[in-house]
Design a protein around this nucleic acid. Sequence first.
DNA 1: ATGCCTCCTTGCGCCAGCGCAAAGACACGG
DNA 2: CCGTGTCTTTGCGCTGGCGCAAGGAGGCAT
Lengths: 260, 260
Amino acid sequence: MIANAVLIDCLRANPVFAQLDDAALDVVLAEATIRTVAPGDIVVRQGDAASAFGVLAGGRAKMIQVTADGRQILLRYIVAGQEFGLIAALPDLAYPLTIEAVDECQVLYWPGATLAAYFGRYPQLALNALQIMVLRNQELQARYRELLTERVEQRLARALLRLAQVTGSCDKDGTLITLPLTREDLAELVGTTLYTVSRTLSQWDQAGLVNTGRERVVVTDAAGLEAIAGTAEVLPVSCVAPCALVEMMTAARAARTPRT
Amino acid sequence: MIANAVLIDCLRANPVFAQLDDAALDVVLAEATIRTVAPGDIVVRQGDAASAFGVLAGGRAKMIQVTADGRQILLRYIVAGQEFGLIAALPDLAYPLTIEAVDECQVLYWPGATLAAYFGRYPQLALNALQIMVLRNQELQARYRELLTERVEQRLARALLRLAQVTGSCDKDGTLITLPLTREDLAELVGTTLYTVSRTLSQWDQAGLVNTGRERVVVTDAAGLEAIAGTAEVLPVSCVAPCALVEMMTAARAARTPRT
DNA sequence: ATGCCTCCTTGCGCCAGCGCAAAGACACGG
DNA sequence: CCGTGTCTTTGCGCTGGCGCAAGGAGGCAT
């Protein structure tokens, strides 16, 4: 059993509950159900009625989607402190993805109706939820754009850097990604095949950028990977004179001849 | 000038204002600013501070993103009745995309702070906004998945079907997509090059699936395109016995040998 | 130790889609 | 009616990445 103080901290750290005072957090926590999920087990299942909202209080989990033809994609990993299932606040929707525990997970649950009630009682929460969805949407849009415009190498480099940031632990000469990452996991994450991932990692290993092993990646030269990933950000268009936008786009389009 | 009744209908039809009574709609509309945007002009600019929320009352517009290297992607088209800039309700964020008018557009604007105030005054609006973002997120996730798992042909077929549905007008023997669609627009929409789009459309034209012209596509055999697009939906996983999920995924993965 | 299972590597052949270049078609304005 | 600019088509060569197949290597249980 996890101490209450830890759970409260968990909620406090979560953007959904930002700006909620301690008394309210106590009330909210008191209404939560806690459940332990074994590694490999399903937290929520794609297609099921979205009945519960949750916060991961411990452990890590994969968010995956299965397609009609049985292929699966790995959308992202979530770690302790992150929430899922905001969709449960809305009536009659289904989970759009499956969440599968990687480690043993502690999960705090609330019925969707309870979350909806919180939105009424603490209006800030509704705004928080909206903000989360807006930001997530931006992130997804960015990844969508990456998929359209970048090549496998770049996407893989960026994925490793993100994972190192979220789940990295310092290691001698590098950052170890503490998730059990198979080549196939990485392939599903960046949208390629396990062969290509393997080949690319081997190459980077020899070049001294990373250090790989069975289900293990250590980032030894983050700067090198960043160079491969390229500038991650979208052009901050408004940094230039406002009216120059159209001209700049045109010029850039004219100059973009090499796709490299 | 557009008649007030038309504008009210426009708001009523918009999911943000769902379940708002007529009196409230009047109040909301009274606080709106209306602006006309000429074809090709920018409605909101990527990177600018997200200061306003808007509803398109007339005309159609492109949502595009420019990348650091000057390439651009076309996220989607919006038509009269659709909203944009929900992000303006939140403090200190920037528009993540540019909206460019295709036709002459009439746009209703509210300052972001006004929208935020509406969320306080009419709590349903905040829930509506959340729902919109959740659904948009699902759609984006679906397109992300398509990009990862499907080939150009499928994505192009699906894009045409969607466009025909949203902006189609009945034509002799087919549905005309009324947007001025260049091959490059389509390429940016499905994530390919104008060459591939041109080649594919030529092929479909000869096969009698579509009828193409300069900036013009008529879908003559929607069923044929649907066959190419394949099953659009994600596997409704929970339709099978709940516990069969894992087995089914495993079986499907074993059976997915040919990527075709 | 031994065997087994899963994961990883790598050679090879292949093809979808890219991107150039050059020519053709269409629309519009003068 | 012609010129001009934009959009479209299509031949061609190329390559990034796919996917198979076969072998290797790490880890776990008995």
